[in-house]
Design a protein around this nucleic acid. Sequence first.
DNA 1: CGATTATGTGAAAGCGGTTTCACATAATCG
DNA 2: CGATTATGTGAAACCGCTTTCACATAATCG
Lengths: 336, 336
Amino acid sequence: MAAKSNVRPTYAVISKTAGVSEATVSRVLNGDENVHPDRIKAVQDAVAKLGYKKHRAASSLASGRTGLIAVVIDDDLSIFSDPFWATVTSGISRVLMENDLQTLLMVANLDSIDGPVAHSLQGGEVDGAIFFQLHKDALIKRLVKQKLPMVITGTPHTSNDFVFVDTDNFGGAHEATNHLFGRGCTNVAIITGDIETTAGRQRLDGYNQAYRKSGHVPSKQLIAEGDYSFESGKAAMQRLLEQVANLDGVFACNDVMALGAIAAIEEAGRVVPDHIKVVGFDDSLLAQTSRPPLTSVRQDIGALGEAAANLMIAQLRGETPEPCILSTELVIRESA
Amino acid sequence: MAAKSNVRPTYAVISKTAGVSEATVSRVLNGDENVHPDRIKAVQDAVAKLGYKKHRAASSLASGRTGLIAVVIDDDLSIFSDPFWATVTSGISRVLMENDLQTLLMVANLDSIDGPVAHSLQGGEVDGAIFFQLHKDALIKRLVKQKLPMVITGTPHTSNDFVFVDTDNFGGAHEATNHLFGRGCTNVAIITGDIETTAGRQRLDGYNQAYRKSGHVPSKQLIAEGDYSFESGKAAMQRLLEQVANLDGVFACNDVMALGAIAAIEEAGRVVPDHIKVVGFDDSLLAQTSRPPLTSVRQDIGALGEAAANLMIAQLRGETPEPCILSTELVIRESA
DNA sequence: CGATTATGTGAAAGCGGTTTCACATAATCG
DNA sequence: CGATTATGTGAAACCGCTTTCACATAATCG
């Protein structure tokens, strides 16, 4: 009795229970239009009754679709120290799951075009891939040729027609800079991020344009280069303090550098925001817990992930979606 | 000519090229011992020459093994705001990939035992699952019955014989507290984490034992409860400042609360570390960027992930590995 | 109203591996 | 040296689902 209790049912069982052929079961389960309503009902009832769940491997083998989307993260870009990517990934994963897709995580060094990741991606093990601000284009270009659906989070710097999602870096930087002027600052410096990255450049552009709009022209002296690290922010600020006489505002291209800047300012015996106002970018946990709490540009990171997933799903449906730019919001705290 | 250039080769092709049967190809590719060296060589050559890569779905269907390990994260425990999990996941992913396994990420609310995650896990879509400090045991217990290989990161509080990896919370807290005494403190308080969690309790135990070892007995007044948030750390510290006369040391059970405590101390017009010394736990980015830089207990988070993956792989090989406790290291900075 | 076109369905052939089973040959034994 | 056990191999069934193809029936047309 009840011999095969914990054996998962197959089409054979469903079709028998519903009184239809296996082909029809497949049609119903894949949303084929041309099935009589009665049979659809019969199949659905049988599925519900037996608690049927499609066998993914079998389905993949037969259909060629795996139901897997890779999220590819370059080991090198220590994106890991940043809660950012976790949140993005979370957003991606949620949306994919809602669409009955699974998230395959690939953390690897992408330098070599022939690593295991490259093989998986090319070998048809996934239906699509979402990349995290990848600078090494070689692999991506190969995959484009193979017509693997892809989404890139972060604007790719080669102006190819990749599908991508990104924060409005320009707009965010513009608003941050503007805010400093609005607070009465007259000499506003910027501590840039890595200028090699698109995001870094866009933020600088936003700063420049906001500066010009204010009627002034930013002198070269006001632009200090950083690399997103605490140390670089601190060093950049020290340079600025030396070289710029009456500096009263700084826009740092991320929160970590902003904290570095604040450290430098206080070590120089000056006070934030009384003497120098500081704005960061990211609105990370750091911004909330620092003293003084940091005014910072917030990006909706979860939304970024969701947008990436949605662009992927659109491509899977055969559409060719437009890139997606998400707007930012300035969160005003005590530092500016 | 060269019609089938970009079609992936199958066993049919390999076996023809190597001059053996498909069965033998399978044997070689799965490391079966009983194959003549000559044929092994022949197959390997053919594989290399044709750039063969196993078709995962086909392999899964036939063998019943998917090559997929789920990493399950409860949406609720906003572990996401914490870079912690990203690093753990990264470690897991790396080790799994080295062992030809893939990482399936599942971020979901695990409240309902019948969500999509539960179905995937039970439906044989993965070969094993790694959970992140899950408090809801219902699902896990079901999966244990189904003999799905599992690893839990973080000590599960039901003392079942789960396979788990964890940081030495007790030891870390012990060392932190000890350090404060060594620095000359005599009234050392603790700001606890969520006492409901095993980690929270273990850290409290470590504190208590270190206290007793020092020859004193910790009064109830010295124990302030927090919940790992900045606000709770600040509030707890304010309470301590009011109630404990000559407080000179605080061990906060994570860095975020430590920063909250420092904020409270400074608002009260006192100085860290001169008046009160503070030690945190996690050695997160926050510890490095705060002022004063925070002395904190470091856990090797990447190693935690790697350990979890290795325990999973051991189970897949049929072994029943022992739980794994990773030791901590006290990183001494300026706050204590 | 017979001829076409739509519509709905099932049989059967895959998809690309794994594994059982039977069998041939080589090694070991009494 | 014949009988037994080990070792190595290929044929073929099978894993569970998808999809083509042929066919029957119903709807539409001239």
